[in-house]
Design a protein around this nucleic acid. Structure first.
Length: 421
RNA sequence: GUGGCUGUAGCUCAACGGCAGAGCGCUGCACUGUGGAUGCAGUUGUUGUGGGUUCAAAUCCCAUCAGCCACCCCA
């Protein structure tokens, strides 16, 4: 094997067929976001380390951020997440922005993690937030956006579920178990870990962490209670609105959903692949978006979805579009040196008529040019060789049906337009 | 950061101390103005990299790099 300089670990090359899929995904994200009135925005890919030190967890900043000194000696970070940037940009214009904000973004992020399936060091993420709202309808809308996206890309409710919970509800329930508020964070971590342990080990783990057997049993009871949501008026209303929006097929109440992030304070949710996969996206309600970067506290709700896992899930369900990169184009064949300028002239004419046109770049055997069209998923071939030039004609061949017809030049142009319409 | 599995032709893999192979693909021809099918012919290698053991290493050992899997973490 030849020696080729390796790409950076954890990065991906986007060849045209990968890019076609990537752009298709981005299109679905844009369409879904806009259909709910969300506006596109973005921030810089480079931010100061300080911005993340203000809020994000220790591990994220200290171990997972790509961090380096610029030439002036300042600590710079390739953004590992978008929320601090959102907070910064909202705080900067807090008085001028029209609230509530509905903003979405799709762009690259970097985390220095060990790559594995569904996780790379450079990835794209869809972030979408509604800011300066705190009612159940806002929580419901963001969850409905997830469901609408799944519907748009063909993921059915049997394939993916959105698991929903409310941290406030859980806090109340933990209070009722006489678990002190300062211990709640620790309990949430225990709950997060439960799916990865068997029941006996988990109970031992809970007790070893300083909780009583009664509290451990109480926690188990909570985690198995699928009707716990009825105790929360807020969550009941969220689920009611989701029902009214016609997306409850996708929704499951699950008291084990907590989300690792400290800044979620209310409703939390995550979408999972039913056939045993990882989380596809996660989000929730937060109460103080901007106070850490110097603004006045502002509530909101949002979620983030990485491109890597969703592409895997879509691929597993056969829902990715076929990689027909140029399939909406025609190919103009080139016969010989004498007529090559006729071919390129025809190309210009076709483009002037709004037709994506590929002109073969040199004279070659037609066999070769037809094979090229096949492999490029081009279904229509236009021939203007010596015979057609002499007769003022165009020959159009449909590669799918093998049918071929010669038309007078102008009529041929409009025929091609019709074919691609 | 910790542990495990795997690196052989463009791709998928075989060979598991003794001549590095198959299928698919690709190129050409049958077919010099007509593609996918078919037939025939041809093509492909520092066995990831570096070292060690051995008469002999793709094969065994060590290191390293990369990919995958689990842990960790999931903003």
């Amino acid at each position: 094997m030849r020696q080729v300089i390796r790409p950076i670990k954890g990065t991906r090359d986007f060849y045209p067929e990968d890019m076609a899929i990537h752009q298709w995904l981005e299109g679905a994200i844009q369409q879904t976001s806009r259909s709910f009135g969300y506006e596109a925005w973005d921030g810089p890919f480079l931010e100061s380390l300080e911005l993340y030190a203000a809020k994000s967890g220790e591990e994220l900043v200290m171990e997972q951020a790509f961090c380096f000194k610029d030439r002036g000696g300042d600590l710079i970070t390739l953004r590992p997440e978008l929320t601090p940037t959102l907070a910064r940009m909202v705080a900067q214009k807090q008085q001028q922005l029209v609230m509530p904000l509905r903003w979405y973004s799709f762009g690259p992020f970097w985390r220095y993690e060990r790559p594995q399936r569904g996780r790379t060091r450079e990835f794209y993420q869809w972030n979408i937030d509604m800011v300066d709202v705190s009612g159940p309808a806002a929580d419901a809308e963001l969850i409905a956006v997830c469901a609408a996206f799944f519907r748009n890309v063909g993921l059915q409710p049997e394939m993916v579920k959105i698991r929903v919970n409310d941290r406030q509800l859980m806090n109340q329930q933990l209070d009722a178990l006489n678990i002190l508020p300062e211990k709640h964070g620790q309990v949430f971590k225990l709950i997060d870990r439960k799916p990865k342990m068997d029941a006996v080990d988990w109970e031992k783990f809970v007790i070893d962490s300083g909780f009583s057997r009664e509290q451990s049993q109480g926690l188990l009871g909570l985690l198995h209670n699928t009707e716990l949501w009825t105790e929360s008026p807020h969550l009941s209303e969220v689920l009611g609105i989701l029902n009214a929006m016609g997306v409850s097929d996708y929704i499951v109440y699950d008291s084990a959903v907590i989300r690792g992030l400290d800044y979620y304070t209310g409703v939390v949710f995550e979408a999972v692949d039913v056939s045993g996969g990882r989380a596809i996206l996660g989000g929730g309600h937060y109460d103080n978006l901007v106070s850490d970067v110097g603004g006045t506290p502002m509530a909101g709700v949002g979620f983030a979805m990485g491109d890597v896992m969703i592409k895997i899930v879509l691929g597993d369900y056969g829902l990715l579009p076929s990689p027909a990169v140029l399939n909406n184009a025609v190919l103009v064949c080139v016969f010989d040196e004498a007529t090559i300028s006729d071919a390129f002239s025809l190309g210009s004419t076709l483009r002037a008529n709004g037709i994506n046109t590929v002109v073969y770049p040199e004279p070659a055997k037609l066999v070769k040019q037809f094979k090229y069209a096949d492999r490029k998923n081009i279904n229509t071939v236009v021939l203007r060789g010596p015979d057609e030039i002499a007769n003022g004609q165009l020959t159009i061949k449909n590669l799918g049906t093998r049918e071929q017809t010669a038309y007078p030049f102008a009529e041929g142009i409009s025929e091609i337009k019709k074919l691609l319409a």
